[in-house]
């Protein structure tokens, strides 16, 4: 399988990439690791006339954990998985990343690419939602920082503007009393999430003072579940409190139905995995006090 012909550009600065996006408009697609886009192009599901490879832009790659955690858009999964600073600051992220695809996929695939692609079954969107990250993007009018809550607007669709380049993902390191976890029901063949749930919990004086829960795989896009979050706030984070909160995780949620998992089953799995993710996050929050 060979993609349709296209023109290939490999700019070395973000400014050049933005210029190319402005010049070619809808005809152009950004290429990072290519592990979503190239398979789609080989199947001729996508046929962009122009590819703009951003992996030769040095400033887009790398991880910093001094103060805020900052991960450049074209940083690969393998780099995230093996980063000691990230394992201390936001352990749920490298753990979730280790569940993506296989070693070869993780050697090429990138965080920024996955977030911009917004595959409904990707793992990273749920994790960055639970960690309340911000997406940095640069476009013709300058730079902006987008809260990740609201960034995923529909299936394969984000809040990025047409000529914007996603440059980095920024989040706070976890501190005392904070814990986060990601649990995944993995499709045995593809490795994608049938359901994936990421949870973040903060405990203050033994009570849940902050909570975020995000679900991927189950619906057209990764979403926060504010009903669960509110239900857990102010409780002691006991298993009974978690069970009660998780029981409403899929309530009112738009759920996919396909040959891998029917709607009713997926809905049930969202609740089960919400409970497991919250329990793991609370346990970690307790051990970080």
């Amino acid at each position: 399988m060979i993609p349709c012909p296209f023109e290939y550009y490999a700019p070395t600065t973000v400014a050049e990439a933005i210029e190319l996006l402005e010049r070619f408009g809808d005809e152009a697609r950004i290429l990072a690791g290519g592990h979503s886009l190239l398979p789609a192009m080989k199947l001729r599901l996508a046929a962009p006339a122009v590819l703009i490879d951003i992996t030769r832009i040095a400033e887009l790659r790398g991880i910093s954990t001094e103060g805020m955690v900052r991960i450049g858009a074209t940083t690969t999964w393998s780099e995230i998985e093996g980063h000691a600073g990230l394992r201390r600051a936001v352990p749920a992220l490298p753990e979730a990343v280790s569940l993506i695809g296989d070693l070869q996929v993780r050697n090429r695939g990138t965080l920024g690419g996955a977030l911009a692609h917004a595959d409904p079954a990707a793992d990273a969107p749920a994790v960055v939602l639970a960690l309340d990250a911000r997406i940095e993007a640069r476009g013709p009018t300058g730079e902006r920082s987008i809260p990740v809550d609201g960034f995923f607007t529909d299936m394969l669709t984000t809040a990025l503007q047409p000529a914007e380049v996603l440059t980095a993902v920024v989040m706070s390191p976890l501190g005392a009393g904070e814990g986060a976890a990601y649990v995944k029901y993995r499709h045995p063949a593809s490795g994608y999430a049938i359901v994936g749930v990421a949870a973040y919990v903060k405990l203050t004086d033994g009570q849940v003072s902050a909570c975020r829960l995000a679900v991927t795989g189950a619906g057209p896009m990764a979403v926060r579940r504010s009903g669960v979050e509110h239900a857990l706030l102010g409780t002691d984070g006991s298993s009974a409190a978690i069970a009660a909160a998780a029981a409403i995780a899929s309530e009112g949620m738009d759920i996919l139905d396909d040959l891998h998992a029917g709607e009713e089953y997926r809905r049930a799995m969202v609740n089960v995995h919400a409970r497991r993710a919250l329990a793991a996050a609370v346990e970690r929050a307790r051990s970080r006090i």
Partner: peptide, 19 residues
């Protein structure tokens, strides 16, 4: 199709030669 690209294993069916 796995080969090593700059020391890391990759699936050569999902990498463009120009990359």
């Amino acid at each position: 199709c796995v080969v090593h690209l700059n020391g890391a294993s990759v699936k050569a069916c999902t990498v463009l030669a120009v990359q």
